[in-house]
């Protein structure tokens, strides 16, 4: 301890050296088989859930107080109905295009469906460096496993990163290590949607491809994580660099105010990260 006090700068440089050496190049490897980290996740679950319940209760009481209860309920019902109708409309549009593409093919292959569990977002990352991480109140006890896709009714949210017995960490699609194999819904042009920390970009789109602002981007299902045809977002900008087009994507889900999410209980087929 005396050495630490006498040579603080030297000790810090040693810490920097170790940090550089030990910093994970491969995040997937780091998350496997670390029971202590999972224990910490579970340890934090109860107080996080308590604070979540408490704040939710306070917010609910306040909202009910300041809003007319009947109007609020009606509003929520209508919002929910609009969301369902939007989803239904998009699904029909998608089905129509799919039908057109596949009518030349004799065999129609249905996309497989998976069981799901709903979860509350009870906490977020404590670090500004890695703010695109949320914690949900479902874990291995509910059948959640690492790599499972997380969505809402509006589209993709992210992927389960680390799982505790009662809670799990979810890496949002806007996180820099997130990558989703996707295509432009209108033209089926393929690319990879990567997180940038505060948004998403779709990369590796061929220069000759037809991509316009306003196009919807959906998952291709080819990365082994996300099911096919789930909405990711909308193209809001296009850059042409080198031989590829780079499209800026605005996620359809408001990832900064997530409350309830759906975990699709689908085991990942392979491991692909943006690294």
């Amino acid at each position: 301890m005396g050495f630490l006090k006498r040579h603080p700068i030297l000790v810090s440089v040693i810490f920097l050296f170790f940090a550089i050496q030990l910093f994970p190049l491969n995040f997937e490897e780091k998350q496997i088989g670390n029971p202590f980290s999972r224990f910490i996740l579970t340890l934090a679950y109860y107080p996080q859930k308590f604070v979540f319940t408490l704040t939710k209760g306070v917010v609910d009481v306040w909202q009910n107080y300041i809003n007319l209860i009947g109007v609020k309920e009606e509003n929520e019902r209508l919002k929910s109905e609009i969301n369902k109708l939007r989803q239904e409309k998009f699904r029909l549009w998608e089905a129509e295009l799919q039908n057109e593409r596949l009518k030349k093919i004799l065999e129609f292959k249905e996309t497989s469906s998976y069981p799901v569990v709903t979860a509350n977002v009870i906490a977020g990352s404590p670090s500004g460096l890695r703010s695109q991480v949320v914690i949900i109140d479902r874990g291995t006890e509910d059948g959640v496993n690492q790599g499972m896709p997380v969505t809402t009714y509006e589209g993709i949210v992210g992927r389960v990163f680390m799982v505790g017995s009662k809670s799990s960490e979810v890496i949002l699609i806007t996180d820099e290590i997130s990558a989703v194999d996707a295509y432009i819904h209108r033209t089926r042009t393929r690319g990879i949607v990567k997180g940038t920390g505060d948004g998403c970009v779709m990369e590796y789109i061929e220069k000759k491809s037809d991509v316009n602002i306003g196009d919807k981007v959906i998952s291709s299902g080819k990365d082994g994580f996300f099911p096919k045809g789930v909405v990711i977002g909308t193209v809001v900008g296009i850059d042409i660099t080198g031989g590829f087009v780079r499209a800026q994507i605005s996620p359809d889900v408001d990832l900064n105010s997530l409350e309830e999410v759906i975990v699709i209980l689908k085991y990942s087929e392979n491991m692909v990260l943006n690294e």
Partner: peptide
């Protein structure tokens, strides 16, 4: 752990 970096950058 809670920000997805596990043993690493914040610790050091």
């Amino acid at each position: 752990v809670l920000s997805g970096y596990l043993f690493g950058i914040h610790t050091f």
